[in-house]
Design a protein around this nucleic acid. Structure first.
Length: 158
DNA sequence: GCCAACGTTGGC
DNA sequence: GCCAACGTTGGC
């Protein structure tokens, strides 16, 4: 199975690329949307790469790259009453939520902003740009991945 | 199983 | 701070 590519969102105020760069690896917990969960449990494989995206940021941007280390880990925050992600409906015998272990690879030389992505030909189909979509984990095509990488190195980025 | 009310996401 | 889009909840 060829390597797949993803985009994973995080608000910099809750978990930023800087924090990720410092910790090197982290558990991507707190996914509480079934569609995002299914991408994570069914599609994601060890070795896949993902864009780290800052949502609710100024400007919202792709800021770095990470790699999937392990998948289908039961999300421990669902059982933690003190966690904001606690879900009483997720039982240890039949967990409802899962997370992935991810490793920091690099920050982009230049973040690629949402507005830049919107302007770039060939990226129109990205889920990120689809109307009303709010998925925190979404698949990215390889050519889209490469294109955004090139944007981060060129001067085209606004 | 329908659907109104409500909550959340996230760009602007 | 606003609000569109969408998911979830719960009454019936």
């Amino acid at each position: 199975m060829a390597r797949q590519y993803w985009l994973m969102k995080s608000e910099p105020e809750s978990y930023s690329i800087e924090q990720f760069a410092r910790e090197k690896t982290t558990l991507w917990t707190g996914v509480r949307n079934y569609q995002a969960r299914n991408f994570m449990t069914k599609g994601m494989k060890t070795g896949d790469l993902f864009f780290f995206y800052h949502s609710n940021a100024e400007p919202p941007s792709v800021v770095g790259i990470g790699q999937i280390v392990d998948t289908n880990i039961v999300d421990p925050t669902a059982f933690d009453k003190k966690s904001e992600y606690y879900d009483e409906k997720s039982k240890k015998e039949s967990p409802r939520w899962f997370c992935a272990k991810v490793e920091f690879k690099q920050k982009l030389k230049t973040p690629v902003s949402l507005s830049t992505i919107k302007k770039e030909k060939g990226l129109e189909k990205m889920l990120l740009l689809q109307r009303g979509q709010r998925l925190s984990i979404q698949p990215v095509q390889e050519n889209e991945f490469q294109k955004i990488l090139r944007l981060s190195e060129g001067a085209l980025n606004a």
